[in-house]
């Protein structure tokens, strides 16, 4: 073999090696990332949904994934909803999730959780929140999401993933290697709703329903507005949702600001903490903690939410559509576990 041929063969082999190495490292990052249902699972699982099947896309924090019971929405209204939410998910991650989601889905409505408006930090407070971005398939979008989430000095560490992730190796188990993840035992049909089984007794929040505003964090506001513009660009209506929570007194003035900004973009929503709405939630039995609805509460709330959605938007009832079997499977699985919440007519 002449030297030129030898060198050419070497460079070709080197390119193949680098490509193979990238694939292996990419998979290793996936294996190492904790497969929390409040973390990477919703976005990884999202890619498993049939193309252009999600009609209602919920984006937001734990309040959203514990509140929007996709099974109730399907069972009682035939709404195909998916919760693309994460713990303490700020608007910047919701924005990049939406950017990624729109590559495969054409939702008819976006439910946007208002909770992120109360976050005052310029960057994501916890590393675990950022780890959920490792589920974003498109590397440019993933890097943009990371860049938005962390201080510039920390970007490289998070973008390369290993400096942040590799210490998770003691938590790697056989299931960590599975793709897609098991969604903490819920299987591949899961739609992002996370059950909170505990019950804590709380009282109705005590507050004066003023219109006073507390300024939003500038970065949260920036990405909130970007998200609204992106949705408008794709002609998808956005509905802001204030999820009921016993600690609402602390959130009220932020929500006022958020609604004000949303109104400037022609967006409205429902704040279910408003006592005038009479959602029929019991603060003594419908919450799992000071922020989240429990299973019972989520069923009550989602019945009301479904009714409001049907009233406000023309959402198709997908019952009987073979393309939506996965929602049916998910709901069947869920009601097998929680038969007490079946609609009374079926009981």
């Amino acid at each position: 073999m002449t030297r030129t041929k030898e060198l050419l063969a070497f460079w070709l082999r080197l390119i193949c090696f680098v490509l193979l190495l990238c694939v292996v490292l990419h998979y290793t990052i996936y294996v190492l990332t904790p497969k929390h249902d409040y973390g990477i699972c919703p976005i990884v699982n999202f890619y498993q949904q049939p193309k252009e099947s999600v009609d209602v896309l919920a984006l937001g924090t734990s309040c959203a994934y514990a509140g929007v019971n996709t099974n109730v929405l399907w069972k009682e209204y035939g709404i195909a909803a998916y919760n693309l939410c994460g713990a303490e998910q700020p608007f910047w991650i919701s924005y990049y999730y939406l950017e990624e989601a729109l590559k495969t889905q054409r939702p008819k409505l976006i439910l946007l959780d208002a909770k992120a408006s109360i976050y005052e930090n310029d960057y994501s407070k916890r590393g675990r929140t950022i780890l959920s971005t490792y589920g974003i398939r498109s590397l440019p979008t993933r890097f943009k999401a990371i860049a938005a989430s962390v201080k510039p000095d920390d970007f490289i560490d998070f973008a390369l993933a290993f400096p942040q992730l590799h210490s998770y190796y003691p938590g790697v188990v056989a299931e960590s290697f599975l793709y897609p993840p098991t969604n903490e035992g819920r299987g591949p049909h899961w739609k992002g709703y996370i059950e909170m089984d505990e019950t804590e007794q709380h009282q109705k929040p005590s507050l004066v329903w003023t219109s006073t505003k507390k300024p939003l964090n500038t970065r949260q506001q920036e990405y909130f507005e970007k998200l609204l513009l992106l949705a408008q660009e794709h002609e998808i209506p956005v509905m802001l949702v204030g999820f009921p929570n016993p600690d609402y007194a602390n959130d009220h003035m932020y929500y006022n600001s958020l609604w004000h900004v949303a109104a400037q973009h022609g967006v409205d929503g429902i704040n279910y903490n408003d006592p005038k709405l009479r959602v029929r939630l019991r603060y003594s039995s419908d919450f799992s903690d000071w922020q989240h609805l429990n299973v019972k509460g989520s069923v009550t709330f989602s019945r009301r939410l479904g009714s409001d959605l049907c009233e406000r938007y023309h959402l198709p009832n997908r019952h009987g559509d073979m393309a939506y079997q996965t929602w049916q499977h998910c709901t069947d699985d869920w009601y097998t576990k929680y038969p007490e919440y079946l609609p009374q007519t079926e009981e």
């Binding site: 292996v24 490292l25 290793t28 560490d157 190796y169």
Partner: peptide, 11 residues
């Protein structure tokens, strides 16, 4: 992969 996963560096 061993170095990247089991090495002592980063967070």
């Amino acid at each position: 992969v061993t170095v990247l996963v089991f090495g002592c560096y980063g967070a």
